[in-house]
Amino acid sequence: MAELTNANMPEELQNDPRVPDDLKNNVFITSLDKIYNWGRKRSVWPMLFGLACCAIEMIATAASRHDLSRFGWELMRASPRQADLMIVSGTVTKKMIPQIVRLYNQMPEPRYVIAMGACATAGGPFKEGYNVVSGVDKFIPVDVYITGCPPRPEALLHSFIKLQEKIEKQSLRNVPWYRKGEEDVIPVPVLGPDLVDPRRAQEIKGKAEQIAEGQPAA
């Protein structure tokens, strides 16, 4: 534990635009962290979980030409319990989002989410559709967004590299999964007359009453 000195973040990292702002002042780079993250970033197992067109490019990324295993991201696991990374590869529909949230809740920490392509980022070309959720980040936290419709396999690999950079920046001291207390469970959305986000139920109720009374909802 002697290595866990509170060496402050090096200057060049402080100014590195790749380091997220909220990590800048409390990241401790230690040898232990390095070993810990070195192991973690090279053994991320994605979940075998495809949604739409982008899933085809995701499979192409995992195939021989691009070979995901080169990064140590060896296996696509079909069970969320064995997966570290969820690649939201395609259009997230309202009918599907309860399942996605449920899968996310079932993934053990540390877990990461990549929103692959325009649809997963914010709805994409189908954003205007009535059954389309405008971005998976409305419900689950996303670590890396990729632009493109669909992103090339190389673009997906690039996002993996970005995610590895992010993993490198995390420290044992403050990673959320060693904190005490209840785990954050995201309430599963409900399919009512339309998609209902339980976290916003009160707000929805209020606005729906306003609209019913003929007032414009702010």
């Binding site: 909220d22 936290p141 670590d143 890396v144 632009t147 493109g148 673009a155 996002s159 992010k166």
Partner: peptide, 16 residues
């Protein structure tokens, strides 16, 4: 240029 991945900390909507 297809290498367009962003962290959420970079305010994705401002970048995207």
């Amino acid at each position: 240029d297809y290498e367009l991945s962003y962290y959420p900390h970079q305010e994705p909507h401002a970048r995207l």
